[in-house]
Nucleic acid binder design. Structure first.
Length: 595
RNA sequence: GGGAGCGUAGAACAGUCUGGAGUGUUCGCCGGCCUGUCAAGCCGGAGGUCGCGGGUUCAAAUCCCGUCGUUCCCGCCA
């Protein structure tokens, strides 16, 4: 099947010197009009690029009416631009089209904002007119990149013999993990579906079903607060393989990610990706998703200050905590900056922050210097490699808080702003469980993750490792996976450790436990966020830039104004009553719209 | 749930700290001129509920309180 040209003979961006003297028809939007009175230039843009059309106003008296973003069709003859007027910045810059016939296919209203990459427009306005925003070259390129990503994923997995299988998007709600997006049932009043947070259990069922290699480009939903890299709905590559162990999963994901990076960036990522254990990631970078594009690693200073007279240091160590530091390098360090960093440290959970500046003479300038012996100061400086001008930041706290705080400050102070470099990283050997604030135990990945060792899980669950792994790109968690539990008895034990008693487990997951009873192959898989991946590959700071129609931080689509109120008839069918407060606001909003 | 920033013409901003007539810049829009531009240029013009409500004041875009919207962050996100 060939590409059908439709109304055009040539794509605007593909007209070249080879087409000189050819009669061509191009269609597209008027990017710019430069009207010199006796001659007028039109930049005509379609999906492929821009070509210059030259019109004589005597022959085309209407050319002056062609405003920006008018949709037009131009017939004409391709010719070389006169010497000296070529535009080397444009792929079509050697040629132009001498206009024969110009037809307005559709006029355009005055634009709410300029369709170019130069103007920075408020995001609310962009989203209200997203269809215009998507015409901007950068956004059009982001759409294409996204398509390339899914295409590379499908091609790679198809080659590897994977089956693309769709799983339901109306599923059971589960109270664990993220808040579910709920959908009320009409046929079963009072009951609710949930939109899936991931196809987790269905893909495991597919392993039981004999689908040995499954994938799906799956829309997933989590009803949690927004961030620059979080929306209510997002798209994941979800995959699973039977008779697999960890390295089979990692190698497959590496193949996929390499293919996507190659298709979008044109670079070959080095395989295999680096690997780091969770413990090492936390110790060195204070994060389970380290950005390894820069150093500024966390250093353990506990031994150097164990006997210190400085109560903050000594106290932390005596109570089982630790003292850690980073060398933030050469920084301007006025009092205000120091205060800001201290505030930030507190925001990240610290009680305070010790800062030191290495002076030209090697002395440490710090509010706490007077509490530290010369030897302690010297050891701190030595361990952190402090050179004159360097700022040293030290946190004394529990291990978790100390490394997390320094990890956060490290990102604030050292993280590269762009995404030119692609630093993929596997984080492996995650803990199986983690402790909640109330002391209870919860899973760190999800409750279907296989423990690394059954004995360890039973005897020492707090320390037990899991067969879970994350892939990280430039400090962003792209996704995670694990080898799953395929033995129903092990699964029941994990539920029990999590405080889910047998009766509850059977009620909620009995159907799944039963499925595991029928010869379930060992299996494992992975899921990564396509939005986040494309965001980084495109050098964007927010996933909204690579999602065609995203929502604002309060879950609003400014264009369609979703979500909207529904009337009582609809609610009655669903057996749902609004609270008095919601009703008031709804009826107030309705009245407001009518007036 | 909490913290911070922002909200002034169709767009992006300056003006707000230190109150004094809606004062200004760039782009767009309207009209005119212009035969080689490519973010064309030149001349002229229109366009404002300073988010909204309240307060202080002789006087509020500016100060105070509240509220709405938006962005970023903390919590949250298996």
């Amino acid at each position: 099947m060939v590409h059908r040209p439709g109304l055009r003979s040539h794509e605007a961006g593909s007209v070249t010197e080879a087409d000189v003297d050819a009669e061509v028809t191009v269609v597209g939007w008027v990017q710019r009009r430069r009207d010199h009175g006796g001659i007028a230039f039109l930049d005509v843009r379609d999906g492929s690029g821009v070509v210059q059309v030259v019109a004589d106003p005597d022959e085309h008296p209407g050319v002056g009416d062609l405003k920006m973003e008018y949709c037009i069709r131009v017939e004409g003859v391709v010719r070389l631009r006169p010497t000296g007027t070529e535009n080397p910045d444009l792929p079509t810059g050697m040629v132009e089209i001498g206009a024969g016939e110009i037809e307005v296919l559709a006029p355009a209203k005055t634009l709410p904002f300029m369709i170019d990459d130069r103007s920075e427009v408020d995001e609310l306005t962009r989203l209200r007119y997203r269809y215009l925003d998507l015409r901007r070259p950068k956004m059009a390129e982001n759409l294409r990149a996204r398509s390339k990503a899914t295409s590379a994923i499908r091609r790679t997995l198809d080659d590897l013999g994977f089956l693309e299988v769709e799983t339901p998007t109306l599923v059971n709600s589960t109270p664990e993990g993220a808040r579910d997006m709920l959908v009320p049932s009409r046929l079963r009043q009072g009951e609710f579906y949930a939109l899936p947070q991931s196809p987790q259990l269905f893909k495991q069922l597919l392993m039981v079903s004999g689908v040995e290699r499954y994938f799906q480009i799956a829309r997933c939903y989590r009803d949690e607060d927004f961030r620059a890299d979080r929306q209510l709905e997002f798209t994941q590559l979800d995959l699973e393989g039977a008779f697999w162990d960890r390295d089979d999963v990692l190698a497959t994901i590496e193949e996929v990610l390499m293919a996507v990076a190659r298709d979008i960036r044109g670079v070959d990522v080095e395989l295999p990706f680096k690997r780091i254990t969770w413990q090492e990631a936390m110790d060195r970078y204070g994060s389970d998703k380290p950005d390894i594009r820069f150093g500024m690693e966390i250093v353990d200073l506990s031994d150097a200050v164990a006997g210190s007279e400085f109560g903050v240091f000594a106290g932390a160590i005596e109570s089982g905590g630790t003292v850690r530091g980073i060398n933030a390098g050469s920084q301007d360090w006025p009092r205000s900056r120091a205060d800001n960093m201290t505030e930030r440290a507190k925001e990240l959970g610290a009680k305070g922050l010790v800062w030191m500046v290495v002076e030209d003479d090697g002395q440490l300038r710090s509010p706490v210097a007077k509490f530290l012996s010369a030897q302690e100061q010297s050891e701190i400086k030595g361990l952190l490699g402090g050179q004159p001008g360097d700022v040293l930041l030290i946190s004394a706290d529990t291990w978790k808080t100390a490394v997390t705080v320094l990890g956060g400050l490290r990102l604030d102070l050292g993280r590269p702003s762009g995404h030119d470099e692609l630093a993929f990283l596997w984080v492996v050997d995650f803990p199986l469980f983690e402790e909640e604030d109330d002391g209870s135990i919860t899973f760190s990945h999800h409750p279907f993750t296989s423990p690394a060792s059954l004995d360890e899980m039973r005897e020492n669950p707090e320390q037990a490792l899991s067969k879970a792994y994350d892939v990280v790109l430039n400090g962003v968690e792209l996704g995670s996976g694990s080898i799953r539990i395929h033995d129903p008895d092990v699964q029941r034990q994990v539920f029990e450790i999590l405080g889910i008693d047998a009766e509850t487990a059977n009620r909620r997951f009995g159907w799944f436990l039963e499925a595991l009873e029928y010869g379930t192959p060992p299996h494992g898989g992975f899921a990564f966020g396509i939005d986040r991946l494309v965001m980084i590959l495109q050098g964007e700071a927010s996933i909204r830039e690579v999602i065609p129609f995203p929502k604002t931080q309060t879950g609003l689509d400014p264009m369609t104004e979703a979500p909207t109120w529904v009337d009582d008839t609809q609610l009655r069918e669903l057996g749902i009553d609004l609270t008095a407060d919601s009703k008031l606001r709804r009826d107030g909003a309705d009245a407001g719209e009518e007036s």
